[in-house]
Amino acid sequence: MNKLIFGRYIPGDSFIHRLDPRGKLLLSFYFIGIIFLAHNWQSYLLLFLFTMFAVLMSRVNLGFFIRGVRPLIWLILFTVILQIFFTRGGHLYWHWGPLVVSQYGLVNGGYIFMRFVLIIFMSTLLTLTTPPLQLSDAIESILKPFKVFHLPVYEIALMISIALRFVPTLMDETEKIMNAQRARGVDFGSGSLSQKMRAIIPLLIPLFVNSFNRAEDLATAMEARGYQGGEGRTKYRVLTWKGQDTLAVAAFAVITGLLIWLR
């Protein structure tokens, strides 16, 4: 159950860890945007070096990033293979009906592969170095302007933070129910697919019922502690934008400039 690498925070005190989560979140999205500016091997090399530099700065083991790619590897390979077989141009190495393997196809396939890997590395970097709670603070802060359109920004952030807070609790509970059902003879691991699915039912039903009970208890407790919605609340946790955050933005601006120059 701990294989879920996406969204797992690795505590640390690197430059990347200390960056403002709002900056990190926005820059991660920005990175996905500028990666489409790259059109030749020089620009991909630049982005690769930049990403590696960021990864090294975070002082998080590279293995975590490679593990982040693994769940998506089939999607990546599928896209790369489509790109290779259906792109024409340049030297033709092989063809069979509509399928071809051309020089352009291979090059484009390589680019697509790089694009995927770099995006995954960058977003993994975000989630590995930012505690989920800070991410939810960042989302709240970024969405704030949308309050004008009656978007319940505060409630959304509270929902995310409560959901995150209950993940370990519910995992523990799942473990307990599984053990309780195992003790009653339920076999979770073996059998055909439909048998496995059926074994999940005695796990899911108590889990659902308990979750609803928890939700009701939690709502009562929140009300007892004076919760009346987001209006008029003050915040205990605040985010502060520092010089290092501006520096990170500047680094991205330089990279953008170089990418445009390399086109």
């Binding site: 933070s161 807070r165 009970n213 939690l218 007892a224």
Partner: peptide, 14 residues
Amino acid sequence: GMVFQNPDNQFVGA
């Protein structure tokens, strides 16, 4: 101030 039965179900903060 109320303290309820289940320690987990009244813990709101992260």
